[in-house]
Design a protein around this nucleic acid. Structure first.
Lengths: 146, 146
DNA sequence: CGTATTTCGGACTCTGTTGTCTTAAATTAA
DNA sequence: TTAATTTAAGACAACAGAGTCCGAAATACG
């Protein structure tokens, strides 16, 4: 349904990355800490953050004092980057009626209408930086967890 | 991911209803015909169309010469009506980060941005009538099946 | 070196959606 | 009435996403 635009893995990843961006210290943050703060299963979150590490968005460190940290400045990471890293590059190309090969040549009857909305969503996600969201959460005391 | 805004059940239902609206004859159309034309599993489509019958969007008739038909004029049925009937009334209210109780009082950092997009999608789906889409498919020879 | 800590990697279970199958009930027509 | 056709209803299987669990590898520290 509308609202399932992001997989759970993706929304978990987003919340974790925003959380990391809010962190003052420059040290690594253990995934266990993140998982308890955000109320997300530790092992599940571990896998998701591994994907972000593979994608070059995070860096990780094993052992004591280990954990994860942002690999680049939070102002240079967008919501879009996280979505692509976790849900894959096909996340913004699917037909709303699920017709295979629906495109501008042989479109479904909702193709143009949906393409417009999808482009707006894509633009919005490219616009929103992790840094900006982290500041919003700090200043307006918004929620990231339960 | 983006593109999974509608469940498969919902997109199947939409395609079937548009197909019904394109029909010239005023008789019932057997679900079996619809399922073969659209390339959808017969039994699965049967269940979905039952939901639309329960919702008062279709009428059904058992036995020979039976099948389903639109209960009201196609111009008075919108895409939104179908989505609500199949995916439920909560289809347009979920938080994009999956936070329970995310609302204007205690929002997630993407609440306002997503609310805007969601409202646009809702408006688009209310705007698009089954009748209009059916005519589009006829005149522009668009696809509803594989 | 040895131990504790932490990510990495794989295998596994659980759950909701999708899809299949079988039987019952209703309706038409001979 | 009987037979054929079609939806209704429910049980069941297959699949994917979500979540759990266990051991291996790396690292810091005594």
């Amino acid at each position: 349904m509308v609202g399932d635009v992001l997989s759970k893995a993706c929304s978990y990843g987003l919340r974790a990355v925003i959380s990391l961006a809010m962190r003052q210290e420059s040290s690594y943050q253990p995934i266990r800490e993140l998982s308890t703060t955000l109320g997300i299963s530790f092992h599940f979150l571990t896998k998701i953050l591994q994907q972000l590490t593979d994608a070059g968005i995070l860096v990780s460190q094993k052992g004591p004092k280990g954990g994860v940290a942002l690999a680049v400045d939070a102002s240079r990471v967008s919501v879009y980057d996280i979505v692509i890293a976790i849900d894959g590059s096909g996340a913004f190309t699917a037909c709303i009626l699920g017709l295979p090969g629906c495109g501008s040549r042989v479109p479904c009857p909702l193709h143009e209408q949906w393409a417009e909305e999808r482009l707006r969503i894509e633009a919005m996600m490219k616009e929103e930086s992790i840094d900006g969201l982290a500041h919003e959460v700090s200043s307006r005391r918004l929620r990231l967890g339960p």
